[in-house]
Write a protein that binds this DNA or RNA. Structure first.
Lengths: 390, 390
DNA sequence: TTTGAAACTGTGCACGGGCACAGAAAAATT
DNA sequence: AATTTTTCTGTGCCCGTGCACAGTTTCAAA
């Protein structure tokens, strides 16, 4: 009883304070509409409005109608800041990407993801990375299992293995974990698929073709070169090749011919060297080379050794090794698939879905930047820009 | 006395509440460090910690030392979300840019600014635009005066007039209003200059030169063409020309010669036509044209009429008129100076300064994107991406 | 010593929204 | 009509930070 009376005194005290601030409500006319404003307009309490907003039920049809009308009329927009604070909830995102031991490319989406996470810290968003060994399906499955057991709120995946990828995503569906794909597209049709963020491989092949075409003289040849194992299982590379070929079929003014080549083991320098030498002996008129992966840098020294420095070179990705040759003006163009942004937007889209309840566009292609010695510096500094964004 | 006793009862009551939640403090070990955590560690109240954090003085050296040590040890990072909510303050930004009646270019930074503002609404940031007529110094001054009288928290300016620009910025200094420059750089040395965000005009000229050079055959000529009034007062254009010339001086392998030309009144179609015709009669070997402004589209139909369709064309900016000719494969390259991003980052940097107290980099050059028929679609869709960012 | 100003410190409401809980009203059951 | 059950509604604490204000201590001057 004593405690109760204390309680009432407390209430009284706080009530006087509330009435003291009532004048403020009148002076915030032009300010943002709050839940309490809707409640007043509809003649109910903020709790009831909240129940309508979050569809928590237990609201009479009459009240619901009045509240919806008030919301409509006042054009209520929830305050994300206040909402995030009140939720006081941690959102855990898991990422399933290849590690960057074999391919420095995979470092880049991670940079973007971490930038995004840094700016979302105060919203309670955290990220846990589960790397798998490039080319190791079993490891992919193992790491996937860890994620499925980890009670995550969302998953960001680069499903580079088709079969195992679908398998993992099906399990996500069962556990009702929404997922977002980056870099590699898989056709999915379920409510937990959020979005695909990546590059348009076909179009990047077309772009490479146009760039080389611009610098070719009539009758010259160009080579499309795959430096990767298992090319025929890699849709990416085949699409790039298709785009490249299609361009020259459509634009025959200069009568450019295409030579196709592939070499698996880039670490076997000797074999690679004699392979390349043979190609340019067989086709002495090749004046342009398009490498479909980020591994162009592996052949640059060989090209110099073979006295083929005037051949135009086009490849992918702003990794350091490639940039070195771009700086020396030996590589002519690098097509940037914006991997940093892929990671950044991947996390941001998950945030939009989880916290802001905004549904992302299902397919988001990032720009294919044409990077040359003369504009490369801006693409390298560009990363800095990202952490300025909140 | 009665009130006082109530007050004490109240205090006692609230204390029991605090002790009631003490268990919670133990269970939030791995959660974010708060002000109250520092206060406990330092053996003071949160008020004192707050005074140290905001340098509001009236703190004993001993307390200050203990708090700083605790902050260091716990690696305190303020919660921006909670801070923004508690501030409950409106931040008013003014923008002083040319209107887009004469030049659709100026529409683009505005799109970026509005995107930024939309995502910062809940932080209380608002934007008021003060457009001035392109080329009208007096109107610039008038609109500037309105801003100075408006009690703004920060200003975003494109100071295209040097004298009047400095004058306005000096007044901003007197009123202690921080300002950020976009598009046009002015050398400033005062504490209210936040940042310059724009393009590197010189380098864009170099880039244009390289692009044309790539498609030229030895001995051919290229033209650098200014389509703008008052070229010699426009540092932008002169810098572009300088970069263009410097490239060909450094790279003389193909022995490319430069023809310089300028025409003021683009709306005088007849005059422009005969001017162009004369140029190509005088220099029949011109195989590439570089227009230093966004007004390349004005001469495209004339080029067709004059039977000069095979000449390579390079210009600036992804405005609709230019994009139409890019789609038709008549313009070869457009250099994108990212005006949308200029606006977006301009507002974001001001937000960082005002709310997050992060000092921006003083000079931020945006990428010079090489846009062609084959990758243009991604640069147009790119704007969408911006509003995904929080 | 007393007084009073100055320096310092602690407390609690506010920001807007989420949600638990206590009540009230309505409906269903005895 | 009295009761239980169900449906509905209002109140107030909580999130972490900012800040006003009340309160305490220190220290010099009277």
């Amino acid at each position: 009883m004593l405690l109760l009376s204390r309680c009432y005194v407390f209430l009284f005290f706080s009530e006087t304070l509330i009435s003291h601030t009532k004048d403020q409500y009148l002076s915030r006319m032009n300010s943002r509409i709050r839940i309490i404003d809707i409640a007043k307009k509809a003649g109910v309490s903020k709790g009831t409005v909240d129940r309508v907003l979050h569809k928590r039920g237990n609201v009479s049809p009459i009240a619901k109608e009045k509240i919806k009308a008030a919301m409509e009329e006042l054009d209520y927009q929830p305050n994300v800041i206040a909402s995030a604070l009140a939720y006081n909830r941690r959102w855990r995102i898991a990422a399933l990407l290849p590690n960057h031991k074999n391919d420095p490319f995979w470092l880049q989406p991670k940079i973007g993801m971490e930038k995004a996470i840094r700016s979302l810290r105060d919203y309670g968003v955290s990220l846990e990375q589960f790397d798998f060994r490039d080319g190791d399906e079993v490891h992919f499955q193992e790491q996937g299992k860890k994620i499925l057991a980890g009670e995550f709120d969302a998953v960001l995946v680069a499903p580079i293995f088709s079969t195992e990828g679908h398998e993992f995503l099906n399990q996500c569906c069962e556990l009702k974990i929404p997922y977002l794909l980056i870099n590699t597209f898989l056709e999915r049709d379920d409510p937990f698929f959020l979005s695909y963020i990546g590059q348009d491989s076909y179009q990047s092949g077309v772009l490479a073709a146009k760039l080389l075409d611009f610098g070719m003289s009539p009758g010259e040849k160009v080579m499309v070169l795959h430096l990767e194992a298992d090319v025929y299982n890699s849709m990416h590379l085949l699409e790039k090749e298709r785009g490249f070929k299609d361009f020259f079929e459509k634009h025959q003014q200069k009568n450019i011919h295409i030579v196709k080549a592939a070499y698996e083991n880039i670490f076997d320098k000797k074999g690679l060297r004699s392979f390349l030498k043979q190609q340019f002996v067989d086709h002495p008129n090749i004046k342009g080379v398009f490498v479909t992966t980020s591994k162009l840098f592996h052949i640059m020294d060989l090209m110099s050794e073979l006295g083929l420095e005037e051949i135009k070179m086009v490849g992918f990705d702003l990794i350091e090794e490639n940039l070195d040759y771009l700086k020396q003006d030996k590589i002519n163009f690098l097509i940037n698939q914006n991997p940093v942004k892929q990671g950044f937007l991947g996390v941001m889209n998950i945030f939009n879905h989880l916290i802001l309840k905004k549904e992302p566009t299902k397919k988001q292609y990032l720009p294919l930047d044409v990077v040359m010695l003369e504009n490369m510096q801006y693409y390298i500094e560009k990363e800095e820009e990202l952490h300025l964004i909140i």
